[in-house]
Nucleic acid binder design. Structure first.
Length: 429
DNA sequence: AAAACGGGGAA
DNA sequence: TTCCCAGTTTT
């Protein structure tokens, strides 16, 4: 027997050992999760989309609320998009929610409301890529398809001592091939879940619990003592900082007790979510990066941004700072309290009426007078996305109205904080 | 192939 | 703090 054949045989034994003992371990250790209580392909699908880049404990309450509100593919397909986004509020990666509803409509119209069980059909659903297609096909339909995510790549890279960069596409493809070979006959559903369960409970990124691991004795990385240095993954570049000025506009007159919110454009960052209006802060004088913008300069910039956006409000004073971290950007928001200008109570200035009308019926007519000083640099959406016709709708809301609009977490916290403050001011006089 | 796209929990 | 996770889509 050649050396090559001996290695191949050892490798084969390692694979069989892995599959057998992992499956056995899973029978005893699997967690009781809401989407594991039924073999409902719709539930599996929803859970898999929610679980993308999101931990189980975070997903559970969202999953329960979601299937209560949208119990079937058809109910999801027929729902208003705002309700779907509201159900997703706080989960992040909101394109997942919008793609999911798009796909629900695909399933309703193309597959009679039944989640398809063939590879091409599943893969063709919006928001379903290589991992999720494999997960749905294997977990819901027991098809022998690999479901390889970062977790599975971590387990496999350690057990088989694979030092390829898992951030590279070809590495994932190789892992899929390997994962497919490992699936025991007729056990795709349990085995794929077992692989992910092991990654979640035992073979964790930082401090793997090797002693209770069911496959430790043949784990190549463990035997080589290098389990904590795997998998190899090129690290993402750090997010870029962005200083922004936000307006918390307090209503007057018929808007008393309410604040103004604005809807984001249909594409790009936080698409179609609601927020406090905000714009990039101009660089501070003196050039020192991160230097605080003088209050007067901030108020002036905010005044012009508000006017440019057609929002009749006067910045008053700094309220608080808030930070919001995305994977690629870090926003530092300096939030200023602003006061709505009640144009009806003012002398009849034409420009004020025009701006006010623009707020009452957004998109209808010109959004305020172009101010010579403003027309140079301030965009309606300084993210560089969208257009004045897309997004930019505004509403005056109180705390109760928040239930009708989906907000990114940072604005959810700011608004709740603000209304809490208002309530305590009421009580204390 | 690289960047865009949220948020929170663990170490 | 830093890392990184049950990824997909767009560029």
């Amino acid at each position: 027997m050649t050396t090559h054949e001996q290695q191949g045989k050892a490798q084969q034994e390692a694979k069989l050992f892995f599959s057998r003992f992992l499956l056995e371990w899973y029978q005893g250790q699997k967690r009781d999760l809401p989407w594991r209580r039924h073999r409902n392909p719709y539930y599996i699908w929803i859970s898999e989309i929610m679980l993308q880049q999101t931990r189980v404990d975070t997903v559970i309450p969202y999953f329960n609320r979601f299937i209560e509100r949208f119990p079937t593919v058809e109910s999801l397909a027929d729902a208003p998009e705002e309700e779907v986004l509201k159900c997703w509020e706080g989960l992040g990666y909101y394109s997942r929610a919008r793609n999911l509803q798009h796909a629900a409509r695909q399933v309703k119209e193309q597959y009679g409301g039944q989640v398809p069980d063939d590879r091409d059909a599943v893969f063709g659903l919006k928001g379903v890529g290589p991992y999720t297609a494999g997960a749905i096909l294997s977990i819901a339909f027991n098809r022998p398809e690999p479901a390889v995510d970062g977790n599975v790549m971590r387990v496999l890279s350690r057990y088989f001592l694979i030092e390829d960069d898992i951030a590279k596409g070809p590495t994932r493809v190789a892992m899929e091939r390997l994962a497919a070979e490992l699936i025991p006959e007729g056990e795709a559903s349990h085995f794929n879940q077992a692989l992910m369960e092991l990654g979640a409970l035992v073979c964790t990124p930082k401090s793997p619990r090797c002693l209770p691991c069911p496959v430790m004795e043949h784990c190549a990385a463990r035997l080589a003592g290098c389990e904590t240095s795997l998998p190899v993954k090129t690290k993402a570049k750090p997010p870029r900082p962005e200083e922004r000025l936000a307006a918390l506009v307090e209503g007057c007159g018929e808007h008393a007790g309410r604040v103004l919110i604005r809807q984001r454009p249909s594409s790009g960052l936080l698409a179609r979510m609601w927020e406090l209006p905000h714009w990039p802060a101009p660089p501070a004088e003196g050039g020192a990066a991160g230097a605080l913008l003088p209050e007067a300069a901030a108020l002036d910039r905010l005044r012009r941004s508000l006017r440019q956006a057609g929002i009749p409000a006067r910045p008053a004073e700094h309220w608080m700072a808030a930070e919001h971290t995305f994977s690629h950007i870090v926003w530092t928001l300096q939030v200023y309290r602003c006061r709505e200008e009640d144009v009806r109570a003012l002398p009849l200035a034409a420009e004020g009426r025009t701006a006010y009308a623009a707020v009452l019926s957004p998109g209808a007519g010109d959004a305020g007078l172009p101010d010579a000083a403003d027309s140079v640099s301030v965009e309606p959406f300084a993210d560089g996305t969208g257009s004045p016709e897309d997004g930019g709708a505004v509403r005056w809301i109180n705390r109760e109205d928040m239930a009708n609009y989906a907000f990114p977490n940072v604005f959810l916290k700011l608004l709740n904080h603000y209304f809490d403050e208002q309530d305590s001011n009421q009580v204390n006089g």
